[in-house]
Amino acid sequence: MGEISIKINIADRVYPLKVNMEEEEIIRRAAKLINDRIKEYQENYAVRDKQDLLSMCVLHYATSALKADKKVTSDDSEITEKVYHLDHILTDFFSKQ
């Protein structure tokens, strides 16, 4: 699929982008998440500066990404250990036959 031109509004600023058609929905949803988070911070904290709000938003999503990455790594390790254990059981079983 080809590229299309879209405009994304984040923190009351418009950003023109060229994106692949299949990524448009994800990018629009991401912008909405960012704007919703900024609005939440504006309502709950005495912060009005857009730069501070964007920094808080970036920290939130970077932390979430790192937690998700750590969980995937941990899950991968557990799965690898279980597969190794299963392989050992099967090897023992078939070597006794």
Rank of each mutant, 00 (worst) to 15 (best):
I6R: 02
Y84L: 15
I38R: 02
Y84H: 15
D75M: 05
D36G: 07
R13V: 04
E3Y: 07
D49M: 06
H88D: 12
A11Q: 01
V47K: 04
L90W: 00
H85Q: 07
I34G: 00
S74A: 12
Y84N: 15
I6F: 05
I89M: 10
Y41Q: 06
A46Y: 10
E78Y: 10
R28L: 05
I6T: 06
S74K: 12
E24A: 12
E22G: 01
D36N: 14
E43K: 13
V14F: 12
A31Y: 01
F93L: 11
V14T: 15
E78L: 12
M56G: 02
L53C: 06
A30P: 02
S5W: 04
E3G: 05
K18Q: 13
D87F: 08
E81S: 13
S77M: 11
S95E: 12
L54I: 09
D87A: 13
L90I: 08
E25D: 12
Y15N: 00
D49S: 12
N9D: 11
I26C: 10
V19Q: 05
Y84W: 13
M21Y: 06
E81T: 14
R37M: 04
L17Q: 09
R28D: 00
D92C: 07
T63I: 06
I4D: 00
I26K: 14
D36W: 03
Q51M: 06
P16Y: 04
G2T: 05
I89W: 06
K18P: 00
S77I: 09
A11N: 04
K39G: 01
V14C: 14
I6V: 13
R29H: 13
K82S: 12
V47H: 03
N44R: 14
D75L: 08
P16C: 04
E3I: 06
H60F: 09
V83N: 03
A68L: 11
T80P: 02
V19W: 01
A31I: 03
K50T: 08
M56H: 01
S55H: 06
I79H: 02
H88F: 08
I8C: 02
A68F: 06
Y84V: 14
A30Y: 07
V19P: 00
V14S: 15
T73P: 00
K70C: 05
K67F: 09
A68M: 09
D12K: 07
F94M: 11
Q97E: 15
F93H: 13
I38F: 01
I27M: 02
T63P: 01
V72Q: 11
A30C: 07
D36Q: 13
L90M: 12
D75P: 00
S5C: 08
I8R: 00
L17D: 01
S77L: 13
L54Q: 04
L53P: 00
I8N: 03
M21G: 08
A68E: 09
E25G: 04
I38E: 02
L33E: 11
K50E: 02
R29T: 14
E43V: 10
P16T: 05
